[in-house]
Design a protein around this nucleic acid. Sequence first.
DNA 1: AGGCTTCCGTGACAAATGTTACAGGAACCC
DNA 2: GGGTTCCTGTAACATTTGTCACGGAAGCCT
Lengths: 211, 211
Amino acid sequence: MTLTTTYLQETFAGTFELALLTDMAQAGLYKRVPTGAYLIRPGEYIRSVPIIIRGSVKIMRPDELGREALLYYLGGLDSCAMSLTGCLGQKKSEITALVEEETELIAIPMEKVDEWMCRYSTWKQFIFHTYQKRFNDLLGTIDQVAFHKLDERLLAYLRKKTQSCQCTVISITHQEIAQELATSREVISRLLKQLEKAAHIKLMRHKIAIL
Amino acid sequence: MTLTTTYLQETFAGTFELALLTDMAQAGLYKRVPTGAYLIRPGEYIRSVPIIIRGSVKIMRPDELGREALLYYLGGLDSCAMSLTGCLGQKKSEITALVEEETELIAIPMEKVDEWMCRYSTWKQFIFHTYQKRFNDLLGTIDQVAFHKLDERLLAYLRKKTQSCQCTVISITHQEIAQELATSREVISRLLKQLEKAAHIKLMRHKIAIL
DNA sequence: AGGCTTCCGTGACAAATGTTACAGGAACCC
DNA sequence: GGGTTCCTGTAACATTTGTCACGGAAGCCT
């Protein structure tokens, strides 16, 4: 699919000025990315900044071996601050971006990201707004890990999931949760059982209902 | 003290162009802040962006009650990303900035921060470089909390301290360490004893020597 | 049906961290 | 010197989290 200004007007109603949308239609690259694909992996270089139109992308931080802690999710009209600094600084990625639900995005080449910053004030605002959101996301993550016990974090994690998928039943295995909270499967199973006994959730195979 | 272009040229040798330094000399406000003072506290509004010239500032994240986890330190020629987003977004601060060692800084009014972004490319670079550094700092913090046990974190913490103060003996109480690592004093005492037995450190009253 | 894999439950134990309680030393003030 | 406060050490115990071991249920393939 090629980008049209009209299409962009619909999706970015109110946030970007017309001239910018026209530029975006020309310079941006529309992509549809299936569930399970990686937008970026640690060590790769970043050449464009993605703006998510629809879908859900999970941003994770890997440690030396194997484990990957969940940092935050990107959803509609979000963009990635890591990619911004990465781009402009020509650095390798320090994080993993995994598509959770099929995602539509617009990739903006880095020259344009830079160029538009001075030309369009709405773009500059968007960029800084993005930074602010990601920063707050990271702070929230730190709050969780530093101040809360695993059972609370688990419940918060499940709640956030239901928000991002707009439903009360989520499909996930204990093993996956364990990875994102940087712990082991058995521990998650145990805590989930506790939560079920406390009537916060209901367990099913491959699925968890939040009450 | 009033700012002179000459003084700025010395301290920012090579990073900023001359015209910018002249503007900075005019718009920037030089401040000397004593140890123990707060640059900002949660809930306050941010009106200017500080650039640290000398000294050391500790950035912390408070939780609902009392505890304050350490996020990172600002040192020479650092600036604060939180203040950037805070300024430009007119938000209240989410963090605490405490002066650890007497600090000299230049406060740049937020209008200028914005204005210079398009006028001076070195300023824009500086801003984004700052973002990148803070982001990496936060990622490092998350790494520590998510993947490492307390004894490792403690040792890392002590090592970082010695770096920032350029010496091998640091003055601090167990209680203070406990707060920054979001745990209790007894736990820190215990682990410090362990580290001493393992000959990593030497304990003294109010002081710890790192070997 | 039989064999295989993946996911889940669970007990038993080990290790790490948090909590409570108390005692002694150092510093300071009077 | 006596009282007070702050800092440190330490024992005992509770709770939380991590690890190992195993068995069973569901689903898939042939």
